[in-house]
């Protein structure tokens, strides 16, 4: 019999404990914090997949989030249940990614970054003057409320968020250990060399872009089930870019555990500074600058450098060894 690795078992245990939280009567504010953390984590993981592993500095997560949220909201107005709206929102985000992939992948480096930055601004302008359904009190600048989610409890959205965050971690884990991940890191390191070594640059970039758009879209739609009101300024708000970018850079870009550490810090800061309004963003921006200047590898990079993982890993190995001996 193959004994599962202890690290796998430990992560499964964390997942089960987290999933039990709503049942065992954890305070509601904790569920709120954790839900925000999950959404931030899913976004950060996908941003890390793009920026850290594919080398695409993508400045348009707010386009995916806003589109998915709007699909959910408008869908709920024409009678689509929110479960279907959630998937449809993510699908629309991925479809949008597919449509823009042909023009934006022609751009490289800094041009790609600016090219993607235009899209959410353009979408915001479009949704500011568009009213597909509803009367004068909805649509355009006022936005829509998501209907039909009155029966959804905080526990349900918590599980949804947990599932999305866990899926995003699992997905990145799998991708990195598959051919796709190898190709992506090759593209990140040197696009021309990767192409001449037989990597289909366009297709692999497209895959990672589509996956990221889908997960970011579903995370955004989940947020709008939790907080059922969307308007152009909120849906296409630059903070949807800021969250994953800061979480990834502070935690450690291109490292698997980076977004987890970063998302925890960013969410913590957000609630700690919630009463200070604009000062909160100011302090987050300063932290981002300090991290970029002082430790470009992020906190996870620093931890790896000082060998902070060595002791727990050795402990795990020792325990695993014991178990193997006993089983024999």
């Amino acid at each position: 019999m193959k004994i599962p690795r202890l690290t796998t078992l430990a992560s499964l245990a964390v997942l089960v404990v987290l999933a039990l939280f709503p049942v065992i009567g954890i305070p509601l504010s904790w569920l709120n914090y954790l839900f925000t953390f999950f959404i931030c984590l899913a976004l950060a993981n996908m941003w890390n997949l793009l920026a850290g592993y594919t080398g695409l500095i993508c400045l348009c997560p707010h386009a995916f989030v806003g589109l998915a949220g709007y699909t959910l909201a408008i869908g709920s107005w024409v009678g689509v249940p929110f479960q279907a709206g959630l998937i449809a929102g993510a699908a629309v985000a991925a479809l949008f990614a597919l449509l823009i992939s042909f023009p934006v992948f022609r751009m490289r480096g800094i041009y790609f970054a600016i090219g993607t930055l235009i899209l959410p601004e353009a979408l915001k302008a479009w949704f500011n003057y568009w009213r597909p359904v509803g009367n004068v009190y909805q649509g355009m600048g006022a936005g829509y409320s998501v209907t039909g989610v009155e029966g959804v409890t905080l526990g349900d959205t918590f599980w949804l968020g947990l599932a999305i965050a866990a899926a995003s971690i699992f997905l990145v884990h799998i991708i990195l250990r598959a051919r796709l991940g190898l190709g992506l890191t090759a593209i990140r390191d040197n696009e021309n060399t990767a192409a001449s070594a037989g990597v289909n640059v366009f297709r692999l970039k497209l895959y990672s872009f589509l996956i990221a758009a889908f997960i970011m879209g579903i995370a955004g739609a989940a947020y709008y089930i939790y907080s059922p009101r969307i308007n152009p300024v909120g849906g296409f708000n630059i903070s949807w870019l800021l969250l994953p970018l800061m979480a990834t850079v502070i935690g450690g870009e291109g490292l698997e555990e980076g977004p987890i550490i970063g998302a925890a810090i960013v969410t913590f800061l957000r609630f700690l500074l919630a009463d200070y309004g604009a000062w909160s963003l100011f302090i987050q921006g300063i932290i981002l600058l300090v991290v970029v200047v002082v430790m470009p590898q992020g906190i996870a990079g620093l931890l790896r450098q000082v060998g902070a993982y060595r002791f727990p890993l050795r402990l795990f190995q020792a325990v695993e060894g014991r178990i193997h001996e006993n089983v024999k």
């Binding site: 800021l242 300063i286 981002l288 600058l289």
Partner: peptide, 12 residues
């Protein structure tokens, strides 16, 4: 990313 950080700081 540093420029982006400056943008956030100036805006806020």
């Amino acid at each position: 990313i540093a420029c982006f950080g400056i943008s956030v700081v100036v805006q806020s």
